[in-house]
């Protein structure tokens, strides 16, 4: 038996200062009748390496810089590559920028598909490449001092699993 074609293949990408509402984003993805699976991921602000070492002052804030113009294109390109590998319904990628307090929501990836395998894999794929290709940079503040967060080798390794 052949699968019915996915009717709604809309991609929604937003780079924004404002917070996002997980429930509302889920509802939007779940509204597609041909999709039997929705996988959502949210990333939160946590303490980063350098300034959060023992005896170091507490990190109080994270600032997210981005490359206006390129960021949205890079995210759209990553979603298109995911669509070429798996049959996907609606996909949402939201990334916040600017000053964010600890524990704030920073990123949302939501993928709808007919079945769970494609939705899980595509969400993982999108996050792996967002981490290595989307032009965002984190700077943390502790005790009035700022420090750029270093890229992690493990993120580079994670994106290689798809090649």
């Amino acid at each position: 038996m052949t699968e019915p074609a996915l009717i709604n293949v809309e991609t929604y990408i937003s780079v924004q200062h404002d917070d996002f509402d997980m429930a509302a984003e889920y509802q939007r993805l779940a509204a597609s009748a041909s999709c039997g699976a929705v996988v959502t991921f949210s990333g939160l602000v946590r303490e980063f390496a350098k300034l959060s070492e023992q005896d170091a002052p507490k990190v109080t804030e994270l600032f997210l810089e981005h490359y206006p113009g390129m960021t949205e294109k890079a995210l759209a390109d990553i979603v298109e590559r995911a669509r070429s590998r798996w049959p996907l319904g609606p996909v949402t990628v939201i990334h916040r920028i600017g000053a964010l307090p600890l524990n704030a929501q920073i990123v949302f990836v939501g993928v709808a598909s007919a079945h769970r395998d494609a939705a899980f894999s595509a969400a993982q794929f999108i996050m792996d490449f967002l981490k290595t290709e989307a032009p965002f940079w984190k700077r943390e503040t502790a005790d009035g001092k700022t420090s750029w967060v270093d890229a992690r080798q493990s993120d580079q390794e994670a994106s290689k699993r798809w090649s």
Binding site: G43, H66, I106, F136, W137, D150
Partner: peptide, 10 residues
């Protein structure tokens, strides 16, 4: 042209 360090979003 843009030059930048490795990205750290997400």
């Amino acid at each position: 042209i843009a030059l930048f360090p490795p990205v750290t979003g997400g």
